[in-house]
Nucleic acid binder design. Structure first.
Lengths: 220, 220
DNA sequence: GTCCAAGTGGACGATTGCTTCCACTTATGA
DNA sequence: TCATAAGTGGAAGCAATCGTCCACTTGGAC
């Protein structure tokens, strides 16, 4: 509180405006977690205790709001890649990256949807960031392959496969994360050049009641 | 055409009503494939060349329409389970099941969403079907484990994990199916008791441009 | 051919969410 | 303390979709 008024003045933004912006972001994360990223803008505004106009002033589009709300998570992803490259053992670096990103998706409800939504867009300004991420990840893959731990036919695009599949899982089943951990364990195992059955995290509590194989064919 | 009028009369449904019902189902599959299962009901009606009232008469809720549209696929799933139990080699039966269901999800756009949507609902009438499916699948798993091909810590609930993850992938990336095939290959491999790196289907054409790791942190 | 119940189409009111606009409030610098 | 421009709230105008209602049409039994 004490610091904000000066810091604020410096970038020409009024203190209350900056405070409201934060409240909106907090509210957005909460609402997105609860109702998905398609939740009404007005709901976010109400939760933040501000009017809709205030929300629109700070975030002119839903997309901007979503990006703002999950910018922190996106940064954590980016950091995980840097960290992964710094790990001495290439396989452990690779594993670290996959596990970190999946853990983020598992823990912050709403983030997976934002993640997928952000997908098709390889727009101008971010293109450079993406290119760098792509290059870095490819480096990580090559190193892990050279060390003999990562199977040689793993392709960098497989990361997208893993992440999208994982997003789908945690979105469909926002449970305690058991399913997510199990999927990640299975996949990491099959990425090894020398696959060995290691112990898995416990299975989900889900019964197979889930399996909608049963046709309601006598369609009543 | 020739047959329908008699068959129809038999169950007390007018021939034109039955014909319209079919047209609606065809239209629904097309529209759901194109715009997702949340597409407006009116769009389906227009595509079918009928009024909205007709649509609502046959399918009072969107849910009923979705179930109607994909009943065939659901039946194919059920049949795959029966077939799988009939395959002499238990592992091949298991593999057959997973691959068949995933292939269905991959090929019929809109079906995966319907599949996931059908999920939480373990309603009364279908409960018995599901229970049977669950029991049969558990049998399949036990047999494959007894034969030594399926890892012993595979849990029947892992099927739900696979299918939901796969749904998420094909929903996010309705491409040519390369990603789907690759995921399935990875997973089946990690389900083996004696994992061995077999050749994978080719990777997706996706570049990693997809990876939205790059934060747009200088949020402009 | 005639009749009538089953079936149909499209208009309509209700609901929900988006976005803009403008009169009011308030932080800030002098 | 005051002036002022930045910031704010909520109402209002739109647009999309839902699901129902009712007057009209048509299949099929006789």
């Amino acid at each position: 509180m004490a610091e904000s008024s000066r810091i604020t003045a410096r970038d020409g933004v009024r203190a209350d405006a900056r405070r409201n912006r934060e409240r909106v972001l907090v509210a957005a994360r909460a609402v997105f977690a609860e109702h998905g990223i398609d939740a009404p803008m007005a709901t976010v505004a109400r939760r933040a205790g501000v009017g809709v106009a205030t929300l629109y002033r700070h975030f002119p589009t839903r997309d901007a709001l979503v990006r703002g709300a999950f910018a922190q998570q996106m940064e954590t992803c980016a950091r995980a890649l840097t960290e992964a490259l710094a790990v001495p053992d290439p396989w452990q670096g690779f594993q670290h990256l996959v596990e970190t990103v999946c853990a983020l998706q598992r823990e912050e409800r709403g983030f997976p949807a934002a993640f997928v939504a952000a997908f098709p867009e390889s727009t101008s300004e971010h293109a450079q960031y993406r290119q760098r991420a792509e290059r870095d990840f490819t480096t990580l893959v090559r190193r892990a392959q050279a060390s003999g731990a990562l199977r040689s036919d793993f392709h960098p695009s497989d990361l997208a496969v893993v992440l999208l599949a994982h997003c789908g899982l945690v979105t469909a089943l926002p449970d305690d994360g058991a399913a997510s951990r199990r999927l990640v364990a299975y996949l990491l195992q099959s990425f090894r050049a020398d696959p060995v059955n290691k112990p898995l995290p416990p299975p989900t509590a889900l019964t197979l009641r889930s399996f909608p194989i049963a046709t309601d064919s006598p369609q009543g």
